[in-house]
Write a protein that binds this DNA or RNA. Structure first.
Lengths: 155, 155
DNA sequence: TTACAATGTCGGCCTAGGCAGATATATCTG
DNA sequence: CAGATATATCTGCCTAGGCCGACATTGTAA
């Protein structure tokens, strides 16, 4: 019923899974290079992975816990603890225990984290625009649609 | 000149970069689960990352070195050394020093590695078909085309 | 031939994610 | 109230990739 691939003709090196992995790696690497090249941000030593977490903290009004971030980003809880350790050590994020539910720890971007945000966002946009060069708006919309459907199929 | 995103309207959580990262993670995780669920392959303890490397060794006739694989998969050389260590420890891969150029080490899948290959390929195809469910062949072709163009833009 | 550059592999150190178990707190149930 | 259950975080152990420097080998130029 409408399978895309067949074992007998499948070419791993040209599969969508392979291509997607490659694109993702290249995009992250490009963002890392941009971050490292920026005089101000390179001093902070922010990586692409850290940036993605930071965006979620700065870009929304309401307070968030580590678990909230894990759900949004389908991230492992243990990995998140360590990620926040690194961000806290760099002074970009603060931990604040919730007094009403002492299991919870709210996360907040510091002033430094907030200050670095606009420049980071610029870079993210620039990198993605570069990768999407040559595509029309409707192509980008289609690509986004395909990805959304795949994510939905993941269950 | 035809940029897809603008900093003022950019929504990180709906960007193509974010979606692609999510899909890639979910696809790898799904493959890992399939591998772990298979009675025979789970005994070998093969992961998705190891599978991707193994495919390259079994799926081609000519001998390959670690550097060859690194170029094909845009992989780090140090990471590849350790990856091969793990594959070798599991008895799936053999190292063979080249006598003509003693810097080179040729890699070869063992009989066990070769034997596991067809089942692995099946799983890879099944997972990708599942993620692409609902897409027509021409949609898959378009998606592949977009990804290829993005990879090309990476430079 | 000798000095230098290039290549291939390896190891150390870092960031990074997944999984399982431990701990503390909160909530539900009898 | 007491005991079980659920939730949030943390820690240890694993795989995993990137970067850099060490080392051996090979190729090249003086």
């Amino acid at each position: 019923m409408g399978n895309i691939y067949d074992v007998r003709t499948y070419e791993p090196s040209q599969s969508i899974g392979y291509l997607m992995t490659r694109v993702k790696v290249e995009m992250l690497a490009a963002l890392d290079r941009e971050l490292a090249a920026d005089p101000h941000l390179s001093a902070l030593g922010v990586t692409a992975a850290q940036f993605i977490v930071l965006v979620r903290l700065v870009g929304t009004a309401n307070r968030k816990s580590a678990t909230d971030l894990c759900k949004e980003l389908s991230y492992d809880a243990g990995a998140m603890t360590r990620m926040i350790d690194r961000l806290e050590k760099k002074g970009l994020v603060r931990r604040m225990r919730c007094v009403k539910d002492r299991r919870l720890i709210y996360l907040e971007a510091t002033d430094e984290g907030r200050a670095a945000y606009p420049r980071m966002l610029e870079m993210s946009v620039a990198v993605q625009n570069r990768f999407l060069r040559g595509l029309e708006q409707k192509d980008a919309q289609k690509l986004k649609d395909y990805l959304t459907r795949m994510l939905h199929n993941a269950g």
